[in-house]
Amino acid sequence: MTDTRTAASPAASPTPGGAAGSPRATPAPEEIADQAGAELAVRTKALTKRFRSGQVAVNGIDLQVPRGAVYGFLGPNGSGKTTTIRMLLGLIGPSSGQAWLLGRPMPAAGTDVLPRVGALIEGPAFHPWLSGRANLVRLDACDATAPPDRKGRIDEALERVGLGAAAHKKYRQYSLGMKQRLGLAAALLRPRELLVLDEPTNGLDPQGTREVRRLVGELAEAGTTVLVSSHLLAEIENVCTHVGIMSTGRLVLQGERTSLTSQSDRQLWVRTDAEHAAGAAQVLTTLGLTEVVTDGTELQALLGEISPADVTRALVTAGIPVLGLAERAPTLEDVFVRLTGEGFDVAR
């Protein structure tokens, strides 16, 4: 990255990234790194955490979360996501490196900037003997700058996560999913510019997971930047505009989601009948597709630079009944595995 300005003086750069970015009409994804700190909701520079045990849980990462993005912060168990988030929010001090939230340095500006940041860190945490609602009242009462109408805001937050009916139940009696929802409600107690959600779908049923995805989409549409972490790639892949992938403390990949997955690894999927499967495989191989795999009546292959239209034409010409044909972008998991050579679920 070439940007060496600190975000401590965001006002000093009224045209952020202008000089660096102007020659190109549409900035490439790596241009994110050249935008000024003020344009980024979250930014870190060589952020590192070495625990007392000697383990380097986060190793010199440069996060770049543009404002308005839904940033999927992904990585296998133990890759350092939660540790990074804890440093961003000022819960633990970095061993070296710096972090900025909404253009302000952390943890120094925490008192000013954190009211604008909603957070759910490593699962929900509340007092078990209080009701869900009483827990929210308590948190809001601790917020010295909370807007007026506490009751209305709390009710709205509870409704938003679908907890309206269970608001007066003791937290101890909540199911895992209800606890998770309450954690989300706490992050939504007041309007936020940035939401930091660590594993928000943990413990939710498929319905709940879908609701969280919808909620994240809604919030993003309203202009909130969302940093959402997960060890389940597929779960949040589709709601993200940007992605950062951690592996053993390093940020191995970062950028716009579409640009990360749309390039070389395009896959083709074909369905024909059992009789013609072998013939179809022959045609694909002849055309130059690689890694052709036949599974009953279905075939998969890497498309490379070949257009699906050409494949269709070739198949039809060869007299093979094409019952289905689709191009599939590689998943993030494919990209991750290619980059690291590891399965996604390895932990340290």
């Binding site: 954190l114 860190i121 699962g123 509340f126």
Partner: peptide, 12 residues
């Protein structure tokens, strides 16, 4: 209970 991290990020 883990509520300490919530309080610190409220922020208190």
């Amino acid at each position: 209970t883990g509520t300490l991290r919530s309080l610190i990020t409220v922020p208190v």
